[in-house]
Amino acid sequence: MKKEQSMFKFIFTFPVLVYTFILILLPLLYILFLSFCKSDSYGGIIYTFTLSNYLNIFDITYIKMFIKSSLIAILATFICILISYPFALVLRTKSKHIQNLCTKLIMVPFLTNSLIRTYGWIILLRKNGIINTALINSGIIYTPLSLMYNRIGIIIGMVYTLLPFMLLPVCSSVLEIDNNIIEAAKDLGASKIQVFKNIILPQTLSGVFNGSLMVFMPAIGYFFITDILGGGKIMIIGNLIKNQFLTARNWPFGSAIAIFLIIITIILIKIYKRLGGKMDDLGGF
């Protein structure tokens, strides 16, 4: 019995140990190591210790960009919440069949190539694209709207690409609320607002935060959206990191920004925990 126990324990713990050390820790150490190195004029790496990469992050140019990038990501996250929350509340009132169908349908766009989807948006949003043509032909507007190659395009692209990451956790947390509790509250004379404030909101907050993190983190990193729908006119942190690796040949600086991002994430997760969120909800749909 004892032997079997310990073998069981071994089977259930050994793979994750191996995985974490080889495929997470080793790459991470490599980046951490790079972030303290210097880059030579040929884009190679000089193995001497320096903190200059981290100090470089706090250059006013980059700070400005971090703020701009964060604002775009916050706006995208906020719009995702504004769409997902009412969507989930409405879905709650529907039958189980429809709930089931809708949560599955959300996944369908996910299964196509994101690059191709983004190209679909170009065809829609261009100056003489489908949306502008339709609006002009129906007499609603006279001159085409600028729907892309600006912030609007980036926000549309971000919200579109990341919406499922918000919809799924928010829906699952809203749909999980026990109807009996709400009925009981109503029976005791609670108003609609009170029900929302005291029952629905607290129970769904973790879903919303969970979704927010899953939207926010990619939204500062998804450089292909700013490149394609933003017309490359606005840089986000993702573009900056990509540039360090693939244009400026400054891997140490790129690594330092990546480590900086990881630290920010850890801080966000700490805040989330302090707000009473369960760690395990993150990323789990």
């Binding site: 880059s39 250059d59 980059y62 840089m235 573009n239 540039n243 400054n250």
Partner: peptide
């Protein structure tokens, strides 16, 4: 060489 960081900064400023 390392002067590319000057170009890189200009790039970050105009975008």
């Amino acid at each position: 060489g390392s002067s590319i960081s000057l170009y890189d900064k200009v790039w970050a400023q105009i975008k």
